[in-house]
Design a protein around this nucleic acid. Structure first.
Lengths: 167, 167
DNA sequence: GACAAATAGTTAGCCGGCTAACTATAATGT
DNA sequence: ACATTATAGTTAGCCGGCTAACTATTTGTC
C-alpha cells in the first residue's frame, strides 16, 4: 500500500488532472488517506499482538469465544463472524488448539459439526493481552475528542454502507 | 478481520467491561470501525483493479512511475514510496515487466542499479483504469460533504501521527 | 591500492489469507 | 427407502506480503 507521505503533491496532481480531468482530487486524497491509515493501524495492532504470540486472526477467535455464554462456538460461525473463510478458520483453530488455547469437541448428535471452546489457558491469554490492548487503544484514540470520535465512526459507517457503489 | 456487524453489543460489552474495567468502550468501537472500513474498502479497490489484471501493488507502481518526469525510477525508490519491501518490489516489477507494462534497464555508470520505466503499454493500462477509478472514488466519497471529507482526513492524520503511542 | 563497509537488487523460504475440490454426514423429496 | 441435495469441516495449492541471506558493485579509509 502507498505511504502517506507519497500522497500526490500539487505538481503531480496537475499532471494527473490534465490527463484525467474527471478526477475529484479531494475525494481521492480522503480515500487514499483512509486506506493508508487503516492499513498502518492494522500493522500496529498486529505488531502489538505479535508480542503475545498472537495475530489478529487468532486473537479475534479468542475474543469471539469469550463473548459466548458457554465460551463455545463452531468453526463456521466463527469464520462468519471473523470475516474469514472457513478454510482459514480451520487453520486458525489448528494453531490455537495446538497451543491449548481452545478445545475441539465433535458434536454428539451431528457428527459433521464440532464445537470450539475457549480453555482456561485461552482465557488466561486474553487476560494477559486485553488490559494492555485497551490501555493502548485508549491512548491512541484519546487524540480525538469524544465528539470527533463519534463523527469519525459515523462517517466511516456512511462510507461502509456506500461501498457497493464502487463495484 | 472482524466484521462490522460483530462489533460488540451492549450485553457483550458489559461482560468485557466487568472483566476489563479499564476499557474505553467508545474508543475501541471507533478504532475497530476504522480498521474494518479500511480493510473493506481496500478489498473493494483490489476487486476493482483485479478486473484490469492489476492489484494494489502493481497499480501503485505504475502510478508512481507516471508521476516521474521521465516516467522512470529505481526499484528501491519505488519500494520506499509504495511502502513495501525491496524484495516485494522485485516481484511486482517482475510481473509488470513480463506483461510489458514497465521496462528494466541497467544503469550505465553504476552497475548495481537499474532503472524502471513505464512503457507506452503501461501508460495505456493506466489510461484504461484511471478514469473509471476516479469516477468510482468520486461516487464513493460523494456520500460525505466536502467539510466532512476534510474533517475525516484531518482526524485520520491525527491518528496516524499518534500511532507510535501504541507501540 | 587493498580491504572494510555500505548499497542495490535478487533469491529462498515463511506465513496467513484465499478458492476450489474433497470427505463425511444429515436433511429432503418423490 | 433411497437418491439427491445441502451442510460442516478439512485439504491442497495459489498468491502477495515479509525477513534474512546472498551476489555484485561501489565507496571510503588506512
Amino acid at each position: 500500500m502507498l505511504k502517506l507521505k507519497d500522497l500526490p503533491d500539487s505538481k503531480v496532481l496537475t499532471k494527473f488532472a490534465e490527463r484525467y480531468p474527471q478526477a475529484n482530487i479531494d475525494g481521492v486524497i480522503h480515500f487514499l488517506t483512509l486506506l493508508r491509515v487503516g492499513s498502518d493501524l492494522s500493522d500496529v495492532l498486529d505488531n502489538f499482538l505479535g508480542q503475545y504470540g498472537l495475530l489478529q486472526g487468532r486473537w479475534w477467535v479468542l475474543i469471539l469465544l469469550m463473548r459466548e455464554q458457554d465460551l463455545t462456538s463452531t468453526p463456521s460461525s466463527l469464520a462468519e463472524k471473523a470475516g474469514v473463510s472457513r478454510a482459514t478458520m480451520t487453520g486458525l483453530i489448528d494453531g490455537l488448539d495446538k497451543e491449548g488455547l481452545v478445545l475441539r469437541v465433535t458434536d454428539a448428535t451431528d457428527r459433521r459439526k464440532c464445537h470450539i471452546k475457549l480453555t482456561t489457558l485461552g482465557q488466561a491469554k486474553l487476560d494477559e493481552v486485553m488490559p494492555e490492548y485497551y490501555r493502548r487503544v485508549d491512548r491512541l484514540m484519546s487524540i480525538l475528542s469524544p465528539e470527533e470520535g463519534e463523527a469519525l465512526t459515523s462517517m466511516l459507517i456512511k462510507l461502509q454502507n456506500n461501498r457497493d457503489i464502487f463495484k
